[in-house]
Design a protein around this nucleic acid. Structure first.
Lengths: 204, 204
DNA sequence: GTCTATAAGGAGATAGAC
DNA sequence: GTCTATCTCCTTATAGAC
């Protein structure tokens, strides 16, 4: 049995094309952002026509929603596969590292919602909201556990850590370093992790 | 002599309206972002018609450029007015605090350029680039001085600190805290400063 | 299911009257 | 300098042939 399970050949091909579309959408979304991404861009990148694209996804919002759902699922899968023996803080660090690598490889940031427009659109997408809440619940638990054990600062409100953590996954400094410094991706990830957890101050 | 110097009454009124337009553009830009801001939005917010708007600013790009130039100038002025006796790191902290307060008051973040489109547009704006380079030179000097004196981590590449510093001025965690936590603006600013300089780790 | 062709509407920019 | 009305282009989405 293939990885497609019981799907017919036709359905397999359909799934494959759907994934190719999501890949293209992810790539365009990463470079141009939601507002400037056009359905023509995506169709062109996949090599199909626009009406065919609409056979797979009923609207631009739907397409983008599915692309982001795939991203969130990737994060949840990554968390699930981590060594259970890792401490909460080390799990958070590993997930942030994963998110930064995904972005450096041309993927999307979580929280693509700097724009109020995009955020509102996503909040109307029930399927997306469900997945985000699932991931958020896991991250929140890790933050609280890390604060309790003293790995993270318990004096900070956990909201501050949580939201700042999300913000670090889409930190624009990553793009600027990639663009203007000669640093390797490895070094960028390492330094971004250090700045997130230790800030700018020297080790005391 | 008024603050307008030698300007005629007509020119004074012109300047006043121009400032009102920039205020409106700043506000719309802050809530909707560049791509979704329409010239109708701005004209409507000021209470003039679109053609009148185009008498003051020859294009949308021009208008946005001027609004951002005014913001950068505000930052430069703020820096210049700081107590010269402050240490480099404390100057950086004060400027970050100023930038966060501007945003919490409905203003714009620096570095509105999460989008490649907007960034490229701004980079073609010579006047804007000149101002940004001026501000950047001052901030870079402060970073290097703070690293040299040991106030900031000298083991980090200064690029990493510099770009991350800019990123903190537009940290989306600010909006999320304002929206979803019951925290006062004062507390938000205080916590964001702590997270920027000390990270998530507890004081050691 | 795929395409060519097109409808429908939005947004930047301007013509021309006053 | 200001406005009403309009031009033009672009983008989402679909109709209809194969």
């Amino acid at each position: 049995m293939s990885i497609f399970g019981k799907l017919s050949f036709k359905d397999q091909a359909f799934k494959l094309r759907e994934n190719a579309i999501l890949d293209a959408a992810t790539s365009v979304l990463g470079t141009k952002g939601y507002d400037l991404m056009t359905m023509d861009d995506v169709a062109g990148a996949v090599g199909i026509s626009k009406p065919s694209l609409y056979k797979h996804f009923k609207s631009k919002e739907d397409l983008v929603g599915e692309a982001l759902i795939r991203l969130i699922d990737g994060a949840v899968d990554y968390l699930a596969q981590l060594d259970a023996a890792l401490s909460p803080k080390n799990k958070l660090a590993a997930l942030l590292e994963w998110a930064l690598r995904v972005r450096l490889d041309g993927g999307l940031p979580f929280l693509p919602s700097t724009s109020a427009h995009v955020r509102d659109m996503l909040m109307r997408n029930l399927k997306y909201v469900t997945r985000v809440l699932k991931l958020n619940g896991q991250i929140e638990k890790l933050v609280l556990a890390a604060q309790k054990s003293g790995e993270l600062d318990a004096a900070l409100p956990s909201d501050v850590i949580l939201f700042s953590y999300y913000a670090r996954t889409c930190d624009p400094a990553v793009e600027y370093l990639q663009r203007f410094s000669k640093m390797s991706n490895e070094d960028i990830v390492r330094h971004m992790l250090q700045v997130a957890f230790d800030g700018f101050h020297p080790a005391r």
